[in-house]
Design a protein around this nucleic acid. Structure first.
Lengths: 133, 133
DNA sequence: AATTAATACGATAAAATATATCGTATTAAT
DNA sequence: ATTAATACGATATATTTTATCGTATTAATT
């Protein structure tokens, strides 16, 4: 409950690593990151491919290939980052679907919306640049 | 991801209902709440039993039995409430276990702790009395 | 040209978690 | 006695998350 996914966790580890090791245009393969941080290779690779699609990373194919970080993070919040990878944040499903069948019978809709807004605000207040240091 | 459980959801519905209908010492059975809000009876009943154990509700057994709300909520935050039902809040598992095996290899520990604190602070700032109105 | 080592990605399997249900006991009003 | 409720451990189902597999493509190296 109230957990972030491994995808987010791996992504943060990758971004922070690449951000702290970008001198001389260095690049790192999924395999390297995997063994540096003991993360499952295949799964990590998928996550890194996601990060490329979202333009957080640039990839280099072929032997001696790897990944490098882009500058996109500079004006991205943690909230935006999470939503870009996992879709919209909603404490309960009925916040995300358009049609709640029993809406008239729901007495906690407005408080839940309030709490959800709080959560999103908290996440939007944290710059990714802080997290990757 | 970042969802609350049905247990919490049902609990909030119950508490709000009982709080708004406590005149003349009225009491409601699990069955009544179940049909008022279209919630699965057995599961809802379990949740209400939880709320009794935690002293948020008082129950009356036997035929014509039911539940009534206690005054405990008055100085409880949403964060405390959630943790009383579901245990400690942690964005990632390694925040909750004492021993992270690869801690030296984790580069995001301190940022995650920061975000976790933010989340907990946001939840602790919302009084339950606001939610049950 | 062949080999090697990497990314890309759809499909599937496995594991973990959340949700719902069942069975039985107990309780108290009728 | 009967009825209708709470109590609660055990179990089953569903959903979500996490991990893996298989195959294609790419580019440096030999």
């Amino acid at each position: 409950m109230l957990k972030i996914t491994k995808k987010i966790e791996y992504a943060l580890i990758v971004l922070r690593h690449l951000n702290e090791h970008k001198e001389n245009g260095a690049s790192y393969s999924a395999k390297e990151i995997s063994s540096l941080y003991y993360l499952p290779l295949e799964n990590l690779a998928k996550t890194m491919q996601n990060l490329v699609k979202l333009n957080y990373l640039t990839s280099f194919k072929g032997s001696k290939g790897g990944y490098r970080i882009n500058e996109k993070l500079d004006d991205t919040s943690l909230g935006d980052f999470v939503e870009s990878l996992e879709g919209p944040i909603g404490l309960v499903d009925c916040m995300l679907e358009k049609n709640c069948l029993v809406e008239e019978n729901c007495n906690i809709k407005s408080p839940i919306i309030r709490v959800n807004d709080n959560l999103k605000y908290a996440l939007s207040s944290i710059p990714m640049s802080d997290i990757v240091k």
